[in-house]
Design a protein around this nucleic acid. Structure first.
Lengths: 341, 341
DNA sequence: CTGAAAGCGCTTACAG
DNA sequence: CTGAAAGCGCTTACAG
């Protein structure tokens, strides 16, 4: 039988209340008493039963998720997973609130974070947008002792406790290897399409992509990055004109959202079918494009995994419990038509 | 506030004990009383707090994992993950016992299952080996009301409640697409290496592989399957002689264990470096082979995920609670040198 | 600075 | 067939 607070109290010769004070590091206990209790804990190998503690405390984990609004399929998928987790979270004493903010808008994100009541929230997860005001807003939450997790897009210089997402440089390298190898020995040029080169993820993916193409595929040449603003119409326009203008395109790396625009352009001319295309994020559109042979590979991060991981990490921080690293590592997933889940 | 058993008791005009009897479907309650309690539950939207119930019951989930012994790196990895989960499982009222049995030995597996005391075990997970005696052993456990999960290798015709692992036909298809595309337009022949064609996983992988090569890469030809018995020495011997004997080999699909033997052979002649190689399971050896460019891709199933999923599924069955399907789906992971975790 | 007692939401003998 | 009371392993006012 595992030792309980009763055993610790008896061993230390104090009452339950005192054991509890020491376990929860509350003040107002003599140093000598603290030492006695800690000795008893160590001697018995006591570990607190968090489920019982949560029951007694009537603990409620109140987690706020701040995510971008707008038509971005990946973000909507993330929101869907969030709703899924939320609907079953009451059973786990967890209350999830969703705050939506305009995409790519640091000021709006910061304002939303500032609006969070530190007394009514026990943990925060957000898709970060790089901006000084965001960093300041996170610092305020951090000072209030609120755990913070960034998702999908990191902000390493901030007070966040964890990042839940993929290594985007590695993702870019992966895309380059796939395109380079799928293109066979054909020499040629590669079109790069981002949402915006102001977004950290896209910059990093591009960097990784370039590295590998330069080092390993000297016959391939990366053309300057097109910006489709993660919007179908803009992407259609920009990419369409690009393909009409440039000759010898053997590959396209679409590193942002806006898969729909890419698909429209690719299916507009039979000749475009030979182009090797690697895109990001598994959505209804990209799945279909894989099946139709329009896309050759899709690099994905599992939105459901990211949400569940963020929840686990926040709770672990709140409780001061350890996490299993392997479980929280988000994989750079490669999907071909054949291994679609 | 969520309603509790007290609220239900009051609403139904009965005592807590009776509410409990109805909730847990225990006998000895008048039909009319059952109906009254059920009506109250429905009216209030009562959902039992499992953590509190587990506390009161002093519930202990006793899970038995039956896995193959022997040097197979993947299985040893699985065991490592199992140990990891086990070490932190006491906190979750879970006791995990590990039973090791000879690999590919249906009789031994069945005997181990028969030895399991149905009164001392609340759930069983196993790596299945196809055999009638195994099916019978599982039927006995199932009759005793014990949830069963197969891992890695399924047994669809048995009484198992869940399969935790990948679709091996799809994995084979994936391997074929990778080899076919990585080989470029080179025509040639492909060497297939399995552990044993008596193992369902390997048969299925081979099937998927063949399908895709025939349908989509008419210039490539699959040679008869070599059997390396998932053993480094045998693999080395069989594959070594194969490569000396056969000409025009452009690809190798290693669908079983025994990566070490494959690596030894490939590194023995500089000429072998051009062969496109796809293997299974991420291990120290296969990671290094990827980094060294000896392997071109590795198809993996996440052992840690499989263990955690098996635990969650067994507990959910025991408690009668729902699962999140997406979380329990094991992915067919593709690793290149660039996206190694 | 410390302790006795009640309570969190369930379950379990025991009694009737 | 049903209920009153105690208890699971913690925490929390309240008293001293």
């Amino acid at each position: 039988m595992r030792p309980t607070v009763h055993d610790v109290a008896q061993e230390a010769g104090v009452s339950l209340a005192t054991v509890d004070r020491v376990l929860n590091k509350r003040s107002g206990v003599r140093g000598i008493t603290v030492a006695r209790v800690e000795a008893a804990v160590a001697k018995l190998g006591f570990v607190r039963d968090i489920a019982a503690a949560n029951l007694a405390k009537q603990r409620l984990y109140r987690l706020a998720f701040v995510i971008p609004e707008g038509p971005n399929s990946f973000m909507r998928g993330l929101e869907g997973e969030l709703e899924r987790v939320r609907s079953s979270s009451a059973l786990e004493r967890t209350q999830i609130s969703i705050v939506k903010v305009p995409a790519f808008d640091g000021a709006a994100l910061a304002a939303a974070l500032d609006r969070l009541d530190v007394d009514a929230v026990s943990g925060v997860a957000l898709v970060a947008t790089e901006a000084a005001v965001v960093r300041d807003a996170l610092a305020r939450l951090s000072r209030a002792g609120i755990p913070i997790v960034t998702m999908v897009s990191d902000m390493p210089a901030s007070k966040r406790d964890h990042y839940v997402g993929i290594d985007n440089v590695a993702a870019g390298r992966t895309a380059a290897s796939l395109i380079g190898r799928f293109a066979g020995r054909r020499p040629g040029r590669i079109g790069l399409l981002a949402g915006s080169m102001l977004v950290r993820d896209h910059v990093e993916r591009r960097m990784g992509f370039d590295q590998v193409i330069r080092a390993e595929f000297p016959d391939l040449e990366c053309l300057p990055v097109l910006e489709g603003r993660d919007d179908a119409a803009v992407t259609r326009d920009v990419l369409g004109r690009f393909l009409e203008r440039e000759a010898g395109i053997v590959g396209i790396y679409s590193m942002g959202a806006g898969n729909r625009g890419v698909i429209d352009v690719l299916s507009s001319r039979p000749g475009y079918r030979d182009i090797v295309v690697v895109a990001h994020e598994l959505t209804d559109h990209s799945r279909k494009a894989l099946r139709d042979g329009l896309f050759d590979a899709v690099i994905n991060q599992d939105a459901g995994h990211e949400i569940r991981s963020a929840v686990r990490l926040l709770k672990a921080r709140i409780d001061g419990t350890p996490v299993i690293d392997g479980q929280e590592q988000i994989r750079i997933e490669i999907y071909l038509r054949d291994n679609l889940p």
